[in-house]
Design a binder for these strands. Structure first.
Lengths: 337, 337
DNA sequence: TTGAAAGCGCTAACAT
DNA sequence: ATGTTAGCGCTTTCAA
């Protein structure tokens, strides 16, 4: 079933059918109706490949996500989808594995799908100009920046929170409430990524509070999954004692709270827990997780706004930094000596 | 950058480049090397649209998901992706909104992307033959069956658990442990979907245990989100009393446990909770949720196996029913009178 | 082993 | 208002 079949059925030319299909105004109402009817009854759907091939440019925006299952990404994906849709573009969602190179994947996707622009979700923080060379369309790093790479700020766009500053705030919230033995649960202290940034914020907060860093309080999971977070927290408990833990992500914090409880510590009576992200589910843990909520909807909206400004030539690249909001929860208590 | 540019750069014809790109054997090693080198340095990626257009059939399998954010779907999507990949096909992931018609979306996707087959995740349970008429390629309903539709069993494939039977098991687990005032938390008793099936299992289990159905114990949320689950559980608590709740999904159960706690009930001391699904996170609630785990990996694997058997003509349609496994958890206690 | 050329389904000039 | 036709980038006969 092609456009020619429809044309034949209606006794018109292919261009007329094409015009109807693309909502061009110069078609008589009668013919338009006839064509639409034929399209409907034949269940005809235009072949996108042929369209893409012939159109000067597509209306596709790519979204490359590392780990669609990441709880924190869900609302961001949703927002991006909505924003792209509202702007009249088509979203092409592409998920990659943790091992895959997102820039490589993005470049392939961009060329094969003729993308106009790209949103990268959950990518690396250390691109070099060579890495991004293959990407010849506008792109926005969503939820991260190139803090560890050599990519100039003028050569890419981003929307994110200030990971270091927010981590600083989270830990300061603990010191403000009297905690001094504060552990940190993270992926790795030098992953050149989110862990490292948030770890720096932790260190700076301790320093500013006159607390010296105790390596025993640093728990590295080496991964982002719940099982490792649980395990590391158990080990942490056996290794040393502390009155609070700063966890770099909500999901890990859920596992950490479980580990604390299984290790005989009540949250928040014996140990406080604070995290960053703010996934919906952590509002339903017992106790509710105290966390710095990322503005997921705005992150997605803003990413698309920046991208389309670039795509449509309204503006050049830019970097936007958003802020978190403290969701008080019940996992942090004030220490009264 | 097209195949012609590469051809020119190497001083060969486009057909030769095409042969190299498609791993045809009849190219001299020298030329092959030269072409590959040019491809690499030019960052050339073949235009997929052009390829799709000219190839008799694509190597694409579609996965249409309603709600990518659904925790329970994550591992299934992962498994499908892996299986499709391993079989040498390309997965096209398409997420739809809750309002959208998945068959409509699937049909469009199928035609525009020339899909060979489709996996439907989280679709409706009540298709009619007319609904699926537009779908002229093999498809598999993953995690559901057409229990409420008029579609003949011979005209589609499915992989799922027996929702009614599994719900029956879950509730029987409660009655076996002495519970008789058993509430149920679900979306709707007649949604012609998963809720309705699991509700039937609940009713049957009560009947078989000689317990009469009390309408006050039936809590309908009207939606699948956490907030509604929480609210309905709070209302349930005010309305009547009970010693156990059967929740039709893990995610809702997490919210329910919170509501019970906030309503002054300890789980499992004052109220037991059992659910179906088995998402990773519910293993980290306090207490660990007792639930019937769905074999998510197998659901995905089997869906792809069935689909490819159909696509490659090895076999016709078929229906596979898998079983859940009880994850004991700590949210159910035995009632000792 | 290689090249020339047809044509996949569609859109957008350019004609009429 | 409608039709004719030239490609878009690619794969694949068919010929050399």
């Amino acid at each position: 079933m092609t456009i020619r079949d429809i044309a034949r059925r209606c006794g018109v030319s292919v261009s007329t059918v094409s015009r109807v299909l693309n909502n061009h105004p110069d078609v008589s109402e009668a013919v338009r109706e006839r064509v639409l009817e034929a399209v409907r009854e034949a269940h005809y759907v235009p072949n996108n490949s042929a369209r893409d091939l012939v159109r000067p440019q597509s209306d596709s925006i790519g979204l490359v996500v590392r780990g669609i299952g990441n709880l924190f990404f869900s609302p961001v994906i949703h927002a991006v989808e909505q924003a792209v849709d509202e702007a009249g573009y088509t979203l092409v969602l592409h998920q990659i594995r943790s091992g895959e190179d997102e820039l490589q994947a993005a470049a392939s996707l961009a060329r094969s799908k003729r993308l106009r622009g790209l949103v990268l979700l959950g990518g690396c923080f250390d691109y070099t100009p060579e890495d991004t060379a293959a990407l010849d369309i506008p792109f926005v790093c969503c939820t991260y920046t190139n803090s560890f790479g050599t990519l100039g700020r003028e050569s890419y766009s981003s929307v994110s929170i200030d990971d270091q500053a927010e981590a600083y705030q989270a830990v300061r919230e603990l010191t403000r409430r009297g905690h001094r033995r504060i552990a940190v649960l993270l992926d790795s202290v030098n992953d050149h990524s989110i862990s490292e940034l948030r770890y720096k914020g932790y260190c700076r907060a301790l320093a500013d509070s006159g607390i010296s860093l105790d390596p025993a309080l640093v728990a590295e999971t080496g991964a982002f999954d719940l099982a490792s977070a649980y395990e590391e927290t158990r080990k942490l408990l056996e290794r040393t004692d502390f009155t609070a833990v700063f966890v770099i992500a909500d999901s890990m914090a859920v596992a950490a709270m479980k580990a604390l409880r299984d290790g005989g510590k009540r949250v928040p009576e014996d140990c406080s827990v604070i995290a960053i992200d703010g996934v919906e589910l952590s509002a339903y843990t017992i106790p509710t997780l105290t966390t710095l909520i990322q503005p997921t909807g705005e992150l997605g909206d803003e990413a698309v706004r920046i991208l389309l400004d670039m795509v449509e030539g309204r503006a050049g690249n830019r970097h936007v930094q958003l802020h978190t909001t403290l969701r008080p929860g019940g996992s942090v208590r004030t220490l009264t000596p």
